[in-house]
Write a protein that binds this DNA or RNA. Structure first.
Length: 850
RNA sequence: GCGGGCGUGGUGGAACGGUAGACACAGGAGACUUAAAAUCUCUAGGCCGAAAGGCCAUGCCGGUUCGAAUCCGGCCGCCCGUACCA
């Protein structure tokens, strides 16, 4: 008998699949198509165990769909542009291109041994000119459709690295890399007009039934729709006539006590130029950090400009105009009216600067008393207006706001407007390793899109990273070109695109990855949409929102069919793979982290070789600095791919984190070896049939088919695996004849095959299965075999389980009732009386109420 | 602050409103073995009991129901997301 050797069989079957070409996706009208996609990886250098879990989930779906008669597209590629490649180049003197492609090679080499059912012929990296050239072509289409524009925008500028930084890269006001004080600079940047789609992107969320509610909610909050009133205060003798404000609480207008403007408001900027005291204040106000912490603790600062405005409903009522550090220029109009009585932030501000606090309403039945904090009624709370203007009707929530808007409009004070929080998407990056923006700056023609026949605009290879800044800017010749419009000498744009652009349409490109247009409509129409998209929750907002925008923009440009405006039919967000941290403390009480192999586990405690006990911090995110990273390559060498695949799915529901433990991996490996052994034994066995045992085994088999299938369909992989363990136990203990057992074992192999494809092939082969298990039809549960002839009914007395009876499954309710009433335990409980109620749920349970 | 989620044995976790704890890890007992590994068998929520059996148990309090881990209300705790958004 041969023993289970993962290394041998995995190489063997991978070669067999490769030779049979069964994972290559080809359009066909014979079968329904199914497109399953996992979020593609960044080529950081090595695959992570999290990748293994992510792609295994996708692979289970892909293989299951293949077995259930679908024409499956399951591709893989690399999100290959981005900063780490440039940072590596700066650190080690290499070239981003070389670094990236080497990493891709390494990672493909690490992924292939996992035996994923991927169509590798469709693979691409976003840094391939064939890919980013098509992206440039689309960018030009977007310009034509008015989906892209240029405007000045304030950016975080790192004066040492000479680059724009994302907000996340600014730490305590300093560049994350250089440590230099970050400046706010105004630069001309390219923007996608995603805000044109705010309403649509919000409304369409409702139709995404197979997306997690959580993700839809996060997107809705991000888009941030609000209904309010925009109106102007007229200025009494100031440098401007009016100050426009926006409010979502027009019903509190009669409680206004000041007007606040942002330090970046045009009026503030004008005053800043004219008055030194204003300039000093604005400089101070702008300093504040952007982190949540900084905002939490930041002091509310105000500066009384001396300017006064009139209240729109009472011209004798004058309000002071403050410049305040908490007012954002890029929301609403950059100016607000403050109502301290009903807004906590305004309350604090008013208290600090001794401004009046005028309530508009009080809780019904309450007295109008001095407030110690802002009174913000709950939505359901009834209030009584003490200073209303829209009649005396008591209205709260949206109704109150709408009434106030109507009233203001009717009296000529502003108009109701809907605002969105969603800003246009700034895509310009002053980096080398990204997709060049395909436009040319011409002295006479201005900014001109490049001609499509000149695409791709390739990144030059001869660049250096020994000095900071964008190498494209200082390249001796790259910038120089002819104006596509007039032919005169002109200069190329040196900004490249945000890497989120690259990942916003790759799913569409997979449908025709080698085409010389961005997509081929026929292919896109066939393969799109992605039927199942799988990835991390960390992309819940940006990547998915950008992709939804891109799909719409691509549709407008004729690159995607109408139905693909929502490109992902179903989304699943998987949990992380975590690992315990083993920690001790050094003499200075600083934490010291130990590798798992240094720690011996006994009775749930961990000990070092020298006997010291370590503190175990369970379920921590894997981190190199905490020494708790497991390397998939090592795991595959040690246990094989099937074990790794089985384990990452087995212990936790897919949406939750799973903790990697050596013991768990060991158990998975044992189980696979056991299945192999059972099959190998069966291949040599020859036991005569045994009718009763055979029937019992086959019934268990059909039940297992049913349950495992349901589990896979509903992303309950852990539940499916538990059922497979159970069925393996049943099979191992069964006294059935060899024929029945072989059938059961082959079925077991099939049901396991999405998770452990290699082992399953070997079992299939040993037990005489025809062809590859990968192309075999999924087993069908026989409904008749799912119903047992006799069922055991628990008998509850007053809701507590007291006894049970065995009855034929089809016994009429009345007969069951008779039997139950005759049961010893029931007779005893009734004590000669009649039950108050008798509930029989056929096939389930009986409850006697006495 | 706002929004969402979660809370079940020593551990990870099962459980269409219907026998709570499937399956697995760790634990205990045993078989095989010179021994170990491997494998196999049994056991296993807590308390009382020799056993039969009983009582208590899904964060806490209440409600709906013949019946609640599951539905509803309130509280406590943890996790995630998000925010000077007017």
């Amino acid at each position: 008998m041969t023993r289970y050797s993962a290394g041998e069989i995995e190489a063997k079957w991978q070669a067999a699949w490769e030779q049979a070409g069964i994972f290559k996706a080809v359009r066909s009208d014979d079968k329904p198509k199914y497109y399953v996609l996992e979020m593609f990886p960044y080529p950081s250098g090595r695959i992570h165990i999290g990748h293994v879990r992510n792609y295994t989930m996708g692979d289970v779906i892909a293989r299951y769909k293949m077995a259930t008669g679908h024409n499956v597209l399951h591709p893989m590629g690399f999100d290959a542009f981005g900063m780490p490649a440039e940072n590596a180049a700066m650190a080690s003197g290499g070239h981003p291109k070389e670094w990236t492609y080497n990493n891709i090679d390494t990672m493909v080499g690490q992924m292939k041994p996992l035996g994923f059912a991927l169509d590798w012929t469709r693979m691409f990296a976003t840094c391939d000119p064939e890919y980013y050239g098509q992206q440039q072509s689309m960018f030009i289409d977007f310009i034509e459709k008015g989906l892209v524009y240029r405007k000045n925008a304030v950016v975080n500028w790192d004066p040492v690295d000479m680059t724009v930084l994302a907000n996340e890269q600014v730490i305590d006001g300093k560049g994350w890399r250089s440590g230099a004080d970050v400046e706010r600079r105004e630069l001309t940047q390219w923007f996608f007009k995603i805000s044109d789609f705010s309403e649509e992107l919000l409304d369409a969320l409702d139709g995404l039934d197979d997306w997690p509610a959580k993700v839809k909610l996060m997107q809705a909050n991000w888009i941030g729709k609000s209904r309010g009133l925009q109106f102007a205060f007229s200025v009494i003798d100031g440098p401007t006539d009016r100050i426009e404000v926006y409010t979502t609480r027009p019903d509190t207008l009669m409680g206004a006590s000041f007007v606040g403007i942002s330090p970046d408001h045009p009026l503030a900027k004008q005053l800043e130029r004219e008055r030194e005291d204003v300039a000093a204040f604005c400089a101070e106000a702008r300093k504040g950090g952007t982190t949540a912490e900084a905002i939490e603790t930041a002091e509310k600062l105000g500066f009384d400009t001396g300017i006064r405005v009139r209240h729109p409903f009472d011209t004798s009522w004058e309000l002071p105009v403050y410049i305040a550090n908490f007012i954002l220029m890029d929301y609403g109009t950059g100016a607000i009216f403050g109502c301290p009585a009903h807004d906590q932030r305004d309350f604090e501000f008013a208290t600090k600067y001794d401004l009046p606090i005028t309530p508009v309403f009080v809780a019904e039945g309450a007295e109008e008393a001095a407030l110690t904090e802002a009174y913000v009624p709950l939505k359901t709370e009834k209030v009584r207006y003490v200073r209303g203007f829209a009649g005396d009707e008591v209205q709260t929530g949206d109704e109150g706001v709408n009434t106030a808007v109507d009233f203001c409009e009717a009296n000529g004070v502003g108009q109701g407007v809907t605002k969105f929080r969603l800003r246009d998407w700034g895509l310009s990056r002053q980096r080398y390793w990204g997709c060049p923006i395909p436009v040319v700056h011409c002295d006479t023609c201005g900014v001109v899109p490049e001609k499509k026949e000149n695409l791709p605009i390739r990144l030059p290879d001869d660049v250096t990273f020994d000095v900071p800044g964008n190498p494209l800017d200082r390249h001796p010749t790259w910038r120089q070109c002819a104006c596509p419009s007039c032919g005169a000498d002109a200069l190329r744009e040196t900004d490249t695109m945000d890497t989120f652009v690259d990942s916003s349409w790759y799913f569409a490109r997979f449908t025709a990855p080698r085409a010389d247009t961005p997509t081929v409509l026929e292919d896109a129409d066939y393969w799109m949409n992605v039927d199942q998209y799988i990835g991390g929750i960390e992309h819940a907002i940006l990547h998915l929102l950008y992709s939804r925008f891109f799909a719409r923009a691509m549709h407008l440009c004729g690159h995607l069919p109408e139905k693909s405006k929502e490109p992902f039919n179903a989304l699943f967000t998987q949990g992380m793979v975590t690992h315990a941290i083993y920690q001790t403390r050094d003499e200075n009480d600083r934490p010291v982290y130990h590798y798992p192999e240094e720690v011996e586990l006994r009775d749930g405690k961990g000990f070092l070789k020298d006997g010291r006990e370590v503190t175990i911090i369970p379920s921590a995110k894997m981190s190199k600095s905490k020494n708790n990273v497991v390397d998939p390559v090592q795991i595959i060498q040690q246990y094989g791919a099937d074990t790794a695949r089985w384990f990452v799915l087995s212990d936790s529901p897919p949406e939750r984190d799973v903790e990697w433990t050596a013991a768990g991996a060991e158990a998975a490996a044992k189980h696979l070896a056991r299945v192999y052994r059972i099959a190998a034994d069966l291949a040599e066995a020859n036991d005569a049939p045994n009718a009763a045992e055979d029937d019992a085994l086959l019934r268990a088999m059909h039940k297992c088919i049913h349950e495992v299938t349901q589990g896979i369909e509903s992303f309950g992989f852990n539940a499916s695996i538990a059922k497979l363990y159970g069925f393996t136990n049943t099979l191992a203990k069964s006294k059935a004849g060899t024929m029945a057992k072989v059938l059961a074992a082959r079925t077991l192999a099939q049901l396991m095959s999405p998770m452990t494809p290699h082992l399953s092939e070997s079992v299939w082969e040993m037990l005489g299965g025809e062809g590859l298990i990968a192309t075999a039809d999924w087993p069908q549960a026989d409904e008749a075999m799912l119903v047992d002839d006799t069922v055991t009914l628990p008998i509850q007395i007053n809701g507590k389980r007291r006894a049970e009876i065995s009855v034929p499954a089809d016994m009429p309710k009345e007969e069951v009732e008779k039997l139950v009433l005759a049961h010893d335990a029931v007779v005893k409980a009734l004590d000669g009386g009649q039950p108050k109620k008798l509930i029989v749920v056929p096939g389930r349970i009986v409850n006697v109420v006495v």
